[in-house]
Amino acid sequence: MRNLLLDGLLRRPVTDRAPKLDDAELTALAARIDVAARRRLGHSLAIREVDAGSCNGCELEINALQNAVYDLERFGLRFVASPRHADVLLVTGPVAKNMRTALERTYEATPAPKWVVAAGDCAVSGGLFAGSYACVGPVSAVVPVSLAIPGCPPTPHELLKGLLTLLGS
């Protein structure tokens, strides 16, 4: 144990540098989120993740955001346990019809101002599950979506870039 702690002190941190936000794609995304909203958010965001029927691939990468390499919290972004504490709902999955009510209730339980981020191809468009009898399709068909982060699953890097766009940092 002592060796491990010592190692941690002596070695360079494992944390990656912050991603650069210069993609044209991201600029376009940012333009869609109104400036006033961003000001209100300041530089801190409380995120409540909602799995609306994902395959769990997206959750793996969202969880990875919290590891020491991506270290989400250094940007003022953190995951909270209740929608009542959240500014942002980060929603994954093609909205399984069995999850629709839960998603709507979670949205209602989130205090305004609030934003919804659709993460992953399923949440953005229904992905490979589009057209299934058991799925609604895109998250935007159920709750208003402010930001879409495509990918199957989006990498932690892509997720981070998307979320930072929301902060406008």
């Binding site: 029927g53 093609p94 399984a96 069995n98 299934s132 009898y133 058991a134």
Partner: peptide, 11 residues
């Protein structure tokens, strides 16, 4: 359970 049922086998 069953909340994440996506109709996989039908697809």
């Amino acid at each position: 359970l069953g909340y994440t049922h996506k109709g996989l086998e039908s697809l």
